[in-house]
Computed example of a mutant assay.
Amino acid sequence: MTTSEIYAEFAAREAAGVSPAYERLAAAVSRDRELLGLLGSLPEAKPQPNLLFGSVRLLGGPVEDPAAFHEYTVANWPLVEAEIRARVTQTNEAGRCAVLLPVLAALPQPLALLEVGASAGLCLYPDRYTYRYGDHVVGSGGPVLDCAAAGLTPPAGLPRVVWRAGLDLNPLDVTDSGDLGWLDALIWPEHEHRRTRLRAAAAIAAADPPLLVRGDLVDDLPALAAKAPPGATLVVFHSSVLYLLSPRRRAAFAETVTGLPGHWVANEALGVLPYRVLPAPPEETRHNVLALDGTPLAWTRAHGQGIVWFS
């Protein structure tokens, strides 16, 4: 897929109906020869919309108007390029716990959670949030995570977590203003509810920090998994992470994680992991596939705002 096609698809399938600003911006970039030329000088996997838009937002540039965005980005390309090259998309959306919860709550308790691509580890606290699936509410503390659920009986209660750890090439610290600023810059412009949620989730993590380890999700996973306490069910999970890897490394990760005790929960975009049979997605917008131990269970929305369980 060309860079132009990546931005056109992002506009049509990810930002449409979710972020008017990013829908306009991505569509404009897909037709902008000058910006596409600059993006073409970047390493593979770097010219992605969220990374470009987040870097410009972090620098204080405009993202509401495509013409202003073009002018700013071209004029400040050395600064923008430096941010893109130095960073990766580490969107740490606590809302994704709403689509993970039905699986986590159904596993043998208590749980030892290990997230790969953990960013700042905000998804390691599924037991600290409150969930609202339509009229059904689960939990009573922390930020409220709303999720439209179809074909699913919401869990009766929260999981019991006795150990939480994260593995990331560049773990972020929510007590560091620069790291928190990058997490904020990755939130889409109109999503003030997600900014409020980020601050609330960051406060939870700051009060009870998880074990965050700098390392590779293939090479360093077994050693970290071995630290999980005995008597707890180990759950290795990830959400919107493996698309950053080459197909070869994805296969190596799958082989590694399936060789560990416990369970593997994946929440990745369609095509990132090989599933033989999937039902048709519910609509044209992009969905992730939620899977347990290699078996697909549901379609999910990128920020945890919806889940459609397979019948």
Rank of each mutant, 00 (worst) to 15 (best):
A68H: 11
A68F: 12
A68M: 07
F69M: 11
F69N: 01
H70M: 13
H70T: 13
E71R: 15
E71I: 12
Y72V: 11
T73I: 01
T73Y: 05
T73N: 05
T73E: 05
T73C: 12
V74Q: 10
V74S: 12
V74L: 15
A75E: 12
W77F: 10
W77K: 00
P78Q: 14
P78C: 15
L79W: 13
V80R: 00
A82H: 14
A82G: 14
E83P: 09
E83D: 13
E83A: 14
I84Y: 07
I84R: 02
I84S: 05
I84F: 03
R85F: 04
R85D: 13
A86R: 15
A86E: 13
R87Q: 15
V88P: 09
T89H: 07
Q90R: 07
Q90T: 07
T91R: 02
T91Q: 11
T91W: 06
T91M: 11
N92Q: 11
N92A: 09
N92H: 09
E93L: 02
E93F: 08
A94C: 08
G95K: 04
G95D: 02
G95E: 01
G95S: 11
C97F: 07
A98I: 10
A98F: 08
A98N: 07
V99W: 01
V99L: 06
L100S: 04
L100C: 04
L100Y: 03
L101D: 05
P102I: 06
V103E: 02
V103L: 10
L104A: 08
L104G: 05
A105K: 07
A105G: 09
A105I: 00
A105V: 08
A105R: 00
A105C: 09
A106T: 10
A106D: 05
A106W: 10
L107A: 06
P108A: 14
P108T: 14
P108N: 13
P108Q: 13
P108D: 12
P108E: 13
P108W: 12
Q109L: 04
Q109M: 10
Q109Y: 12
Q109A: 11
P110I: 07
P110Y: 10
L111Y: 04
L111C: 10
A112G: 08
L113G: 07
L113E: 01
L113F: 11
L114G: 05
V116P: 02
G117N: 03
G117P: 01
A118S: 12
S119Q: 00
S119R: 05
S119V: 08
A120K: 06
